[in-house]
Simulated assay, not measured.
Amino acid sequence: MTYILAYIGTAIAFLCLDFLWLGTVATGFYKSRIGELLLAQPNFIAAGLFYLVYVAGIVYFAVQPALVSGSWTTAAVAGGILGLIAYGTYDMTNLATLKNWSPAVSAVDMAWGTVLTGFAASVGYWVARKFSVGF
């Protein structure tokens, strides 16, 4: 039950913030730099699969070790590192293989992935600790 709660808390935090980021805050930034590469409508099935798997990765690699250590900072740091690695893989691969990929997009997106994943892991840790029996 602890890990289900961690997954739910992590997913809500991650999805809400990423929706705000992609839908409002950074929309103009991305469109102005990679607009010709963007679909008119996102592929929601692919996005949904990413979110399902990535949130599970956050719980496994960041929240679970934090629950074992009893430290929210473990969740934040491990989540941040995971975010940098995951988003960095995507962004640096695009920078290496796509024509006209913006280095600014890579830098901003990697920073966002680091902060978002660290925060979501921290929320997942907090939810699991707050609502699980035995913590």
Rank of each mutant, 00 (worst) to 15 (best):
K31F: 00
S69N: 10
V53T: 10
V133L: 15
V123H: 06
F119V: 01
T93M: 12
M1T: 12
I12Q: 13
N100I: 00
T93R: 09
I81K: 05
S71E: 09
W21S: 02
W126Y: 13
T114I: 02
Y51V: 01
T97L: 10
L52P: 02
Y125H: 08
S132N: 06
T114G: 07
G35S: 02
N94Y: 09
L67R: 00
A46V: 13
P103Q: 10
I58T: 13
Y90I: 08
Y3S: 03
G83W: 09
A76N: 07
V127W: 12
N100S: 12
D91R: 01
K99I: 04
G48T: 11
F119N: 05
G48S: 14
W126Q: 12
F14A: 03
A6Q: 07
K31R: 15
G70L: 11
K31I: 02
S71M: 11
F29E: 11
L15C: 14
Y60H: 15
S69G: 10
F135W: 12
N100R: 14
F50Q: 07
F44I: 13
A128K: 03
V133W: 13
T10V: 05
N100Y: 09
T73S: 11
L98M: 13
S122F: 06
L22V: 06
A26I: 03
L5Y: 06
V55M: 09
T74S: 01
A76G: 07
A107W: 05
W21L: 00
T24I: 13
F44G: 09
T117C: 15
G48R: 14
K130F: 00
A13T: 08
